[in-house]
């Protein structure tokens, strides 16, 4: 269980609080107006933004862990792959940060590339890939890291609707397979409906506790109505 206890982020002219839990294996959408702090919330969980209060996973406080040691993988909005490393090397970093890979590691990388539909592309550099393929590769590395939590900070925002839907289905499949807990930032209600059973609404300095996604959108609070324009 992921628990946020009196989490508070204070920055210049910006603050955000959150105090709730997410059950293991849940798929959570994080929605709200731009600038409300959706990304900041994820960055705080990942260890990039200082905060007050506690974040625990299965009772373990994450505060003492460096970003790379936390039980989570994160996909950023962009810059998810190192452009100077091949796809196989980028994926290999998910297995060994020293990039010391055994033959069986290479076999796993190949399998994972197959799994996300990038068969035989291990030798390519990111610049030779399309946006959708880059998203798949980043997801493949998260699969190899096999951490219990997956944070998605709109990594597919730049993709067209069809491609984005495809990627979300891939995330759903992968999460179902591994039982990962997923938090996904989005500004599109359709994404939330498609992907998440519960949704966190971030607005007015508060990240509200997760509510069932369908309830939230059938009976939206004022701030969400304003955002959606309904």
């Amino acid at each position: 269980m992921l628990r946020l206890e009196h989490l508070e982020v204070h920055q210049e002219r910006f603050h955000l609080t959150a105090d709730w839990t997410v059950p293991k294996g849940a798929k959570v959408a994080v929605i709200g107006p731009s600038g409300a702090g959706k990304s900041t919330l994820l960055m705080a969980l990942a260890g990039f933004v200082p905060h007050n209060g506690r974040v625990t996973w299965d009772g373990q406080d994450l505060a003492t862990l460096a970003p790379g040691d936390r039980p989570l993988s994160i996909l950023f909005q962009d810059q998810n792959l190192f452009p100077h490393l091949s796809l196989a090397q980028n994926l290999g970093l998910g297995i060994s940060p020293r990039l010391q890979l055994s033959a069986s590691d290479h076999a796993r990388i190949e399998q994972t590339l197959d799994r996300v539909g990038l068969s035989g592309m291990g030798g390519r550099k990111p610049s030779q890939l399309s946006g959708g393929q880059i998203g798949r590769a980043a997801l493949a590395r998260a699969l190899l890291r096999a951490r219990p939590i997956l944070l998605l900070d709109e990594p597919f925002a730049a993709l067209g609707p069809a491609l984005k839907a495809e990627m979300l289905d891939l995330v759903t499949e992968a999460a179902n397979e591994t039982g990962a807990t997923v938090l996904m930032v989005t500004h599109d209600p359709a994404d939330a409906r498609r992907f998440a059973e519960v949704t966190v609404l971030v607005a007015n300095g508060v990240a509200a506790a997760p509510q069932p996604t369908t309830d939230l959108f059938t009976n939206p609070p004022a701030v969400l109505r304003e955002y959606l324009g309904t």
Binding site: G47, P67, S73, F76, N80, F82, L85, L93, P97, L99
Partner: peptide, 17 residues
């Protein structure tokens, strides 16, 4: 942040990134 999130640090980060 990408390097941090993957646990790349020290000489290793120097060499690879």
């Amino acid at each position: 942040r990408l390097s941090d999130s993957l646990g790349l640090s020290g000489l290793n980060r120097l060499r690879l990134v």
